[in-house]
Design a protein around this nucleic acid. Structure first.
Lengths: 235, 235
DNA sequence: AAGATAAGTGTTAATTTGACACAAAATTAA
DNA sequence: TTAATTTTGTGTCAAATTAACACTTATCTT
């Protein structure tokens, strides 16, 4: 087999920024790194790419190992390449961010990894450039969610409008007018009202909604302008 | 030095999608590949990452070699990783797209590479997955330009409003109402009217404008909504 | 001098947005 | 059982933005 001679070959890591939402706050799934260097320090879940898999496959594999979940929403974020980013050996890191319904997460699966959910606001220090990765993922999510109905990926099958509003308010660290918010969300036609109410979180109870799956798939790329004056909120 | 043992190391290529605009149409700078396999076939300009440079440095280096230009607008696009994408050896390709003022391009510099500008619409077949890369870059550019004043990077220091409109119309393959278009562009406050007119392209002549550099830098991330109903135009 | 070409500009109606407040449902406390 | 508390759910109106639309001006050519 012909080879490209005289070129450097490097390790390629895949790191996953995994977001969840507990109903009130954004969370991040982290692991305690199991090997040197920085053993026992908190880290994003990652791994090296294998000879016969693509990066997408690697990211899905890593996510499955950690959470037991398949078909998770995932998006390539950025490739980090500072020659000194990993002190052991030149390693390039391709990052993916994932949005999961925290309720589907299987705790036992990830015991091997000492995985834990952290409040995004109270994230511990992470190894290498992982904090920078989280920051970038958060910015990307803010950007994208301002225009596309992506945050539904964080919610269970049924959800209420107040929950949805908390989701948006949490991401942008702001408050939104509930009348305008529900008008806008309902006007997308993506929500199907259910008969039952969620009585867990309030006395009156809030009606459940489900996503119109077909419309959701079709409109995923539509510009829906969820956030008033996004440039005021995006960094 | 400790190493991560038992892991595969792979080649990392950097490929650049270089856009230009000739006043009427979008162009793409391509080279004739100088080595096997696919020697003499048209290809994006690229190269392998070197041991002590980041991807950004590699992309800038490649762009400088090909065009003689520094400080070009460039953005990481996506990392391509199909295990079979390069038939010779497993290679991961990190792509960057660049916007350059075609007038600043130095032809002689790139003679070594047999570089040529192609009309984007008449792009030849490219090696490997490079056509897919171009397609993705084009979509990213459409997306971004719908909201951010990025297309100025393709124009010379002074430009006219009709030129600007051709730039937007070309990207979205549509026509825009010139009254609404110029009103919107002028309302950004980014344009500074010059006294001189461009008499090359019309009898009456069109006034030149320049960018307000400071405001441009500040407002680069602002959401300016240049394109009416972008979801109708973005794929 | 008349004709051709492209630049430049203003109005209006429709839509969308943002600001705002009160009634309804159900639980809890008096 | 009645009153108080909490949170859901909804409607209006003014302001801003958008989209649709046509004529005049400048200059070159014939």
């Amino acid at each position: 087999m012909i080879k490209y001679s005289g070129q450097t070959r490097v390790l390629v890591a895949v790191d996953c920024i995994i977001f969840g939402f507990d109903g009130e706050n954004y969370k991040l799934l982290l692991i305690q790194r199991g090997f040197a260097p920085e053993k026992k320090k908190w880290s994003l879940m990652g791994g090296f790419i294998q000879p016969d898999e693509s990066l997408e496959q690697a990211a899905s594999r890593i996510l499955l190992e950690l959470t037991g979940l398949k078909n998770v929403y995932m998006e390539q974020l950025h490739t980090f390449s500072d020659p000194k980013r990993d002190p052991v050996e030149r390693t390039i890191a391709v990052t993916y961010f994932a949005l999961i319904d925290i309720q589907k997460y299987e705790k036992q699966l990830s015991k091997d990894y000492h995985a834990e959910w952290f409040l995004l606001k109270e994230m511990p220090h992470l190894i290498f450039d992982h904090e920078q990765m989280v920051e970038m993922a958060r910015n990307r999510l803010r950007y994208k969610a301002a225009m596309h109905p992506i945050l539904f990926e964080l919610l269970p099958d049924r959800f209420t409008i107040p929950q949805l509003q908390a989701l948006y308010e949490g991401l942008y660290d702001t408050t939104l007018d509930k009348r305008n918010f529900s008008r806008k969300l309902l006007s997308t036609g993506l929500l199907v009202k259910q008969q039952e109410k969620d009585k867990e979180n309030s006395k009156k109870g809030a009606f459940y909604y489900k996503l119109d799956k077909e419309k959701y798939t079709d409109d995923f790329q539509a510009f829906l302008n969820f956030i008033p004056k996004p440039d005021k909120l995006l960094s």
